[in-house]
Nucleic acid binder design. Sequence first.
DNA 1: TTTTCCGGTTGACATGGATCAATCCGACGC
DNA 2: GCGTCGGATTGATCCATGTCAACCGGAAAA
Lengths: 247, 247
Amino acid sequence: MPNTIPLNQEISLTVIKTACSNCNLRELCLPFGLSLEELERLDDLISTRRRIKRGDHLYRAGDAFDSIYAIRSGFFKTDVLLEDGRDQVTGFQMAGELLGLDGISTEHHTCNAIALEDSEICAIPFSRLESLSREIHNLQRHFHKVMSREIVRDHGVMMLLGTMRAEERLAAFLLNLSQRFTARGFSHAEFYLRMTREEIGSYLGLKLETVSRAFSKFQEEGYIAVQQKHIRILNVKSLKALMSHRS
Amino acid sequence: MPNTIPLNQEISLTVIKTACSNCNLRELCLPFGLSLEELERLDDLISTRRRIKRGDHLYRAGDAFDSIYAIRSGFFKTDVLLEDGRDQVTGFQMAGELLGLDGISTEHHTCNAIALEDSEICAIPFSRLESLSREIHNLQRHFHKVMSREIVRDHGVMMLLGTMRAEERLAAFLLNLSQRFTARGFSHAEFYLRMTREEIGSYLGLKLETVSRAFSKFQEEGYIAVQQKHIRILNVKSLKALMSHRS
DNA sequence: TTTTCCGGTTGACATGGATCAATCCGACGC
DNA sequence: GCGTCGGATTGATCCATGTCAACCGGAAAA
């Protein structure tokens, strides 16, 4: 808020930019449900902010784990690699979402996190987060919910990979993106994909050609309009219906 | 330990049976890494133990969440259901593993947990676990690791469902079971499957016929010996090799 | 402007796993 | 002992998706 800006413009800008209490994503992100006072304590802990250029890694599988990361702006993918070279995208993350939870288990990251566009993240030192969440019940509770939500999300992906056919998978994917963009105040019906067809395919367990064909099919049917990475959803109902009918 | 048993035999037996400090699974389960004193505080919290008969639900999707569950003995599966009737097994859990983490997120369970054999579980009231883990740093840390491990495990399943072919999936599945049985002091090479071919198929994103054929194939090749649900692993190396060669 | 390149689209064909169906086998009840 | 039943195996066929290949088109480089 303008009237909280101190006289020293130089410092104030930094403060504003790094503080959870001034972040418009706070209701989507870790600070959810915290009081003003609690928020300020969380501010103290988010010391580092980093820009990650499109294509760069935020972390790599094998890196020592010490922080989790909140996405302040931008778009990421995470992927895992098998020894034989196969890899799979395990998720796409957008502003307000957390990255790095996979590293807590072994204290080393188990996947790669790569920016799909120029992005900014807040690094949250994990041991300090644990300390603080021992003191702030709301923070502890919310953090647990975030981890659990990730588990539930993963179950959804398993469902998708295990039981759905190609077009159902793509419909589920588009509806999921639409819903998450909506939650961030963007149009639910129109958005740019930040990832390639190949990355979508990897996430959905399909080849890029199959993804491309499904896009074309949806366009023919009038469910969506596709222009490269620009997607307009024309008929949400049909997309939803696609998913809930056993073939 | 015998010398801690109080005079009243009646009570002592109950105490022994429900205490984490006397549980031989404690190194696999929530108490991992706790001091004796910390263990005793955890004991106070594990008040309820329940027997679940084969085929019965421990909880159902939609049930209000208030506890997580540690498996003391037995074997479970979890599955999720789609509105259209499709379902998928999301995991098989054995002694020492935790169930119910999916419920933290929404305070309602999002999957079903079903006993595949007569089992016993310890109910751990979640809000009390949170309180205690605010006081016991080791407990907090370990609980976070358990949740994170679940996320990493799920990534492994996604990998399996997204990139592996039928025989690779089954090999991965068998090796994973073998490894978990080993960790519990059972033979790594010989075990009984508690689940049907259909349940294995559901977990692996395959039809039961495909699972059956893969078992037969493995037997022909001399990798394993199959007799109904009794499995002997004859050639771990070949099974592992199967997984790491791009077809 | 032209060239190059990468990602995307589309077509033709191959194939792994699904589907449908018959049979087997062991457990259990009568 | 005999019949029944559920799970497992096996065979024949089908089809969704993978594979391979040609081509397109926009963006960046030359």
